[in-house]
Design a protein around this nucleic acid. Structure first.
Lengths: 182, 182
DNA sequence: ATAGCCATGTAACCAGTTACATGATTTC
DNA sequence: GAAATCATGTAACTGGTTACATGGCTAT
């Protein structure tokens, strides 16, 4: 239990997000997970286990209140006044810097030890992945009625994916690879 | 102890990197940390504690061998033949996808609950940070004698930082902010 | 009404971070 | 040669992931 007992203080971003989503009404862990994945999943990965753990901790601190258990000990959590306050306080704090963990860059950093053909294969797979993501983002951007803030976060995704693709184009030159002759 | 006992198998990327660096000769935990921070720190964060823990685990598996303890139980680790093999095997595997955790995007996603002025402040701070990083990368790119692979990873950093800055420019428009009148 | 599957929650484990301990080294 | 500082390592805790358990639902 992370923010429990000894730690009444600072909310972690995952817990804070849950409080954020609960502003639209009470929800179960499962529902929250689904919403979170849809809304922030692209830049803030979270798992089912985390959601339940954080909810338990939040409840222990009185920031959410658990409703009556239904079938399968399924219960909805609702925001308390204290929870609303804690969320507002968290939101106003300066957000920390982003973290990137990019295994492909590790592989590349040690590329001197690796067969070049294999490296190219990995890069090709990787490119497909990113092309898919960009396409998805662009469709989202066009199709759905997004509010300004959703559009703002989506915009990051679009810039990011384009940057990754542009970088991969550069790699051909940097690593002195001949053009693709698929 | 992470990859110990029951888990003789797959190396985690952090441990694998240590094996990678040990190819240039035996080194202590502290030295490895310094090298790792310099070489991969920008896209693969690691801490002192992790380094020691992974070294212990690697030693337990015979992938590295600890030398004689010097002052302060300081001891150098050297790569074993098994370690070299494990590294090579790891390097050939398809690297996983990257992970991004971007607290500012969370704040932005919930921007509707937040005072606009505060959001702008956070964004301004954030921009300064990224401008600094881009400058550093560009200097590295120009000044130092980098090998092709270092240049390839650095190139990612440059593309990335430029994308972040371009995105922040876009935000002014998306969030309908008047031009900066510092 | 029962076999299989899916939804939902839990627990055990691994990775990452923070805060601390302690022995060397410098400096006055 | 004692105090302060720094280098190096360790331990305790928080966060993240994986794998599991089990109750309810669906379909035949």
């Amino acid at each position: 239990m992370p923010l429990t007992a000894r730690n009444p203080g600072p909310l972690n971003p995952t817990a804070a997000s849950l409080l954020g989503f609960l502003h639209s009404g009470a929800a179960t862990g499962d529902e929250l997970l689904a919403v979170a994945e849809a809304m922030i999943g692209d830049f803030w990965h979270l798992t089912r286990s985390q959601v339940y753990r954080e909810l338990a901790a939040l409840a222990e601190h009185g920031l959410v209140r658990a409703g009556e258990p239904g079938p399968r000990s399924r219960r909805a959590f609702e925001l308390t006044a204290a929870g609303r306050e804690a969320f507002t306080r968290w939101l106003a704090e300066p957000p920390g810097g982003e973290q990137i963990r990019y295994p492909l860059l590790l592989t590349l950093a040690f590329g001197g030890h690796l067969d070049g053909g294999l490296l190219r294969e990995h890069l090709t797979d990787h490119r497909i992945e990113h092309e898919g993501r960009l396409t998805r983002y662009l469709e989202l951007d066009r199709a759905d009625a997004l509010d300004d803030y959703q559009r703002a976060t989506l915009s990051f995704g679009i810039h990011y994916e384009r940057a990754v693709l542009a970088w991969m184009d550069d790699l051909r030159r940097l690593l002195k690879w001949p053009a693709e002759g698929e």
